[in-house]
């Protein structure tokens, strides 16, 4: 287990081993580690490596520099990525014109250390270029950014998830950056409610619950990534439900007991999937 400093008791070790053995037996024996493309080229697909960008991937990045007319972002890949000012639409959805005023106001849009959600556009001679052309991309706030190994996130047709039950948003970036945050629309609703009801007392615990759920979801992702299990919406939801049903405190979700529980549940889930 990678970088795992959990202390297991003898019994927990046995249970974990049993669950992992079960997983091993369930995995198909003919798992192809490499695939041959032609007779002269071998295509190697490595598991543990930095993120390899592909055009169209949804990624999460952190702004590290505001340049002349572009931002430089860290997206966990071999080199930094750039996002041009012109690769962003105006808030009303119009194409942005390159004006001097716009360039001066770049820091109003994103600053250094901001976490933003973008799409990989293409490679050019001097690096990787990103874009954020719709309202659903852009700055992320009030939430947690988690870093996992990129091979744990699969490319899917949906990377934005809204867990209505908990009122949180989950974005699985292809680059292994995962965002768990407050649901954005819900926040607007809440403000409206506040005005309508004019009773802020009711809403404060609601807000607390949301942040609690954010932490729970984040810990669920952390637990899964230390075990090296794939991260999908269904599995993360399952782990959150597991933690709620066992009445665990949030900080206990990073403990060894929960780790073993997650492994056992995953083994159970995969074996039931196999039997179907």
């Amino acid at each position: 287990m990678r970088g795992n400093q959990l202390q297991f008791s003898q019994f927990q070790k046995l249970r974990l081993q049993k669950a992992l053995d079960k997983l091993e037996s369930l995995s198909s024996d003919s798992s192809v580690l490499w695939s041959v493309l032609t007779s002269t080229y071998v295509f190697v697909r490595s598991l543990l490596s930095r993120y390899k960008p592909k055009a169209g991937d949804i990624v999460i990045g952190r702004v590290i520099e505001v340049g002349q007319n572009r931002w430089r972002l860290d997206i966990n890949c071999g080199q930094n990525a750039y996002m041009m000012l012109s690769a962003m639409n105006m808030p009303d959805g119009l194409q942005r014109r390159r004006t001097a005023l716009d360039e001066l106001n770049m820091r109003c849009i994103f600053e250094e250390e901001d976490v933003i959600c973008v799409i990989v556009r293409d490679f050019q001679h001097d690096g990787l270029y990103l874009q954020a052309r719709s309202q659903k991309y852009g700055k992320l706030s009030s939430g947690q950014l988690l870093t996992v190994a990129p091979y744990l996130v699969k490319r899917q047709n949906q990377h934005f998830h809204h867990l209505e039950h908990y009122g949180i948003d989950l974005i699985l970036g292809c680059n292994g950056f995962i965002w768990v945050g407050e649901h954005v629309e819900a926040r607007d609703d809440m403000i409206e409610d506040q005005i309508n009801q004019s009773d802020p007392q009711v809403l404060i615990p609601n807000k607390n619950y949301t942040s609690e759920y954010i932490c729970r979801a984040a810990d669920a992702v952390r637990a899964l990534s230390t075990l090296g299990f794939i991260l999908t919406l269904e599995i993360i939801k399952g782990v959150i439900d597991l933690s709620l049903s066992t009445n665990l405190d949030i900080h206990d979700m990073l403990g060894s007991e929960f780790c073993v529980l997650v492994a056992e549940k995953e083994a159970e889930r995969r074996s039931s999937n196999k039997n179907l």
């Binding site: 198909s28 580690l33 543990l48 995969r270």
Partner: peptide, 11 residues
């Protein structure tokens, strides 16, 4: 090591 990572990840 690779085999272990692969089966843990699942499909």
């Amino acid at each position: 090591n690779t085999k272990q990572l692969e089966y843990r990840r699942g499909s």
